[in-house]
Design a protein around this nucleic acid. Structure first.
Length: 265
DNA sequence: ATGGTTGTTGGACAA
C-alpha cells in the first residue's frame, strides 16, 4: 500500500501536475494540503476520471486538505478535535484499506512573535491528543502532511538561519518530539537514517530550488504496526522541477501487505 | 540588511 502526501499550493493551478503524478505513481492514498479552494469548487470530476475518489475539506482562499484514493474512503472525520472555534481547514482523517490516514496542514506559525505561534503550539498539542486516542484504540495509521516542522538541524540547508523561525524554534521541535515519542515512526528517517540534503520544500524566492536550499517539513508518521510494515519511503523531487511547480514536492511510503502475527516478512 | 516569488484576490495577507 502506497501512501503519498503533497502540499500542492492551489489545486486549481496544480491540477495538471497532480493528475500526471497520480497516473504515473498510482498511490493507494494521496494526501493533499493547501488546495486553497472550497469543497464545492474542488475539481472532483477530473480526479474521478482517473478512477480516484475524493474526500475534501476545503475553505475559501487558504488552507484546505483532501484525501484521494482508488479505493473506498470510509469513516471520514473533518477537523482536529479540541478547539471548536478553530475554523481552519487543516485536518482530514479517513480509513482506506484498513489503514487510518490523515491529511495534515499544520499551522506555519510565523511570525513567531505573533498570536500565530501559540496557535501552532496549541494545534500540535491537539494533534498529540488525537495520536494518543488512535494509539489507545490500537488503530493502524499513517499521518501525512505538511507539518511545518524541521525536526533536526540536518533537515535544513542552513539550520542557523532557522533558529528563530516558527518551523524550527525549540518549542516547535519539543512539541514534534513529544508526538513522535508516543511511539510513532518518521518513515523517511527510519529508512534513510543518514541522509542529508533530503528536502521536501524549496522557497520560490532567491533561486532556492536551483541552489538546493531546502528544508524537510513534509512527513509521514506511522503507528507502530504500520512501521512494522514499512518497506519504502521516497521524496520525489520530480514535480518540484517542473514549470509552475508547487514549492513542495511529494513524499510517499510503501507498506507491505499485512503480515500474520508472529511472523516477519 | 534588503529583497527576492507565488497564489488568492482584487489590497493585502499568507507562506
Amino acid at each position: 500500500m502506497k501512501i503519498a502526501t503533497w502540499n500542492v499550493n492551489s489545486i486549481k493551478v496544480r491540477l495538471g501536475a497532480v493528475c500526471e503524478w497520480i497516473e504515473k505513481e498510482r498511490p493507494d492514498a494521496l494526501l493533499l494540503q493547501e488546495i486553497k479552494t472550497t469543497t464545492d469548487a474542488f475539481p472532483r470530476f477530473e480526479i474521478e476520471s482517473l478512477g480516484y475518489r475524493c474526500a475534501v475539506l476545503g475553505q475559501r482562499a487558504y488552507n484546505g486538505v483532501a484525501i484521494l484514493s482508488p479505493h473506498p474512503i470510509e469513516d471520514v472525520m473533518e477537523g482536529l478535535p479540541g478547539e471548536p472555534a478553530d475554523d481552519h481547514a487543516r485536518y482530514l482523517e479517513a480509513s482506506i484499506g484498513g489503514v487510518r490516514v490523515a491529511s495534515i496542514y499544520l499551522p506555519n506559525g510565523n511570525p513567531a512573535d505573533s498570536e500565530k505561534y501559540p496557535y501552532k503550539l496549541r494545534w500540535m498539542a491537539r494533534l498529540r491528543e488525537r495520536v494518543e486516542t488512535l494509539l489507545a484504540d490500537d488503530v493502524t495509521f499513517v499521518l501525512g502532511g505538511d507539518y511545518n516542522v524541521i525536526p533536526e538541524p540536518r533537515d535544513a540547508y542552513d539550520p542557523a538561519a532557522w533558529v528563530d523561525d516558527a518551523l524550527f524554534k525549540l518549542d516547535t521541535r519539543r512539541a514534534w518530539r513529544s508526538i513522535v515519542n508516543l511511539g510513532l515512526t518518521d518513515a523517511f528517517r527510519a529508512l534513510e537514517p543518514t541522509a542529508t540534503h533530503a528536502y521536501t520544500f524549496w522557497d520560490y524566492q532567491a533561486g532556492a530550488w536551483q541552489r538546493d536550499l531546502g528544508i524537510r517539513i513534509d512527513h509521514l508518521l506511522l503507528s507502530p504496526d504500520a512501521a512494522d510494515r514499512l518497506i519504502g519511503c521516497q521524496i520525489d523531487k520530480g514535480p518540484r522541477g517542473a514549470p509552475k511547480a508547487s514549492d513542495h514536492t511529494p513524499i510517499w511510503c510503501e507498506l507491505s501487505d499485512k503480515v500474520p502475527a508472529g511472523r516477519f516478512a
